[in-house]
């Protein structure tokens, strides 16, 4: 097997006239956590379905775990673990029955592979007799992950596992993924949450079926092309409209209690921005230079793409 667990070239997919995927090229290394980060409708689910042999691409090819997703789909299905975006358990079966069923269809031995899911499953084991439909969101997710792992897959494909899940459960889920990575399982995960990017080894930012950039999160944020300031005042809306009036400031976006303003390097200082705003009658409580985050990068790349 090559050093890549997944490699794709020239993947495109159309639904009628709409292009869901536009010439995707990327590869995922063995044992990596690789994140696809982008909003709903970016093409993440389509891509994952192609990689899991559920859909055929219109052009291009893809290999997963050493198998061609079209020709070798039967062999590939034996080594894939897949958690679709929709809640994919049988709600009328109990926790235990769900696990036994999924182990059964992969002809996997629960005892043999239990070590893999132990940390996760132990948390839901006290409710083994409860029907899956009656579990809380966080527990459902743990059960779904246990079911996807029980046959010890080589590649784990997770389509938006954390969507609609609260911040605490999300954090727990990521802790589990990082433990799984240590077992040598390659994980690709789709998420609309930008803040989950830093938890991945590498990420692809994806929008309108196109990959905007692929790299480690630190390289992506490190190559953010603008100088970034965060500014705070009492009235965010007014602050944004004032900032946008400055000819050197080309972006002003809300980020929590702050507004992030981007300028070209070497054109403006924090002091100059504060003075400019004060002149316009806007009192600021903070203006300081900061490093960009993934979300800053995403917004910037999206704007470039839209132009």
């Amino acid at each position: 097997m090559s050093e890549y667990a997944i490699s794709c070239s020239g993947l495109s997919k159309f639904y009628g006239k709409t292009q869901a995927l536009d010439n995707l090229n990327f590869s995922v290394k063995q044992g990596e956590i690789f994140g696809f980060i982008g909003p709903d409708g970016a093409g993440k689910t389509t891509l994952f379905r192609i990689l899991t042999t559920l859909l055929l691409a219109d052009s291009g090819n893809a290999r997963v775990a050493g198998f061609d997703v079209v020709k070798d789909y039967k062999s590939l299905r034996k080594v894939l673990g897949y958690m679709p975006g929709k809640f994919s358990l049988y709600q009328d079966l109990t926790v235990e029955e769900n696990l036994a069923f999924f182990a059964g269809i992969f002809k996997a031995d629960i005892k043999e592979n239990y070590y893999l899911i132990k940390d996760i499953y132990d948390q839901i084991a006290p409710f083994a007799g409860r029907r899956a439909g009656k579990l809380s969101g966080g527990m459902k997710q743990k059960l779904a992950l246990s079911c996807a792992l029980i046959h010890k897959p080589v590649v784990l494909v997770l389509d938006e596992p954390t969507t609609g899940v609260d911040a605490v459960s999300r954090r727990e889920f990521w802790d589990m993924l990082i433990r799984l990575k240590k077992e040598g399982i390659t994980i690709i995960v789709a998420t609309p949450y930008m803040d989950e990017a830093i938890l991945c080894d590498r990420v692809a930012l994806i929008q309108h079926g196109k990959i905007l950039v692929t790299d480690t999160p630190s390289v992506i944020t490190g190559t953010y092309p603008w100088k970034l300031f965060r500014v705070r005042s009492d009235n965010t809306l007014n602050l944004i409209s004032q900032l946008k009036k400055h000819p050197e400031i080309h972006s002003a976006d809300m980020f929590g209690e702050y507004v992030h303003a981007g300028t070209e390097h070497g054109k403006l200082s924090a002091e100059e921005i504060r003075a400019f705003l004060e002149e316009a009658g806007t009192v600021t409580t903070e203006v300081s230079e900061i490093a960009a985050g993934i979300e800053d990068c995403f917004i910037d790349l999206m704007r470039k793409e839209n132009e």
Partner: peptide
């Protein structure tokens, strides 16, 4: 409808 078919299809069944 429930999405479980996706998982069944991806399995070796």
């Amino acid at each position: 409808e429930l999405g479980t078919m996706e998982v069944l299809l991806v399995s070796p069944l």
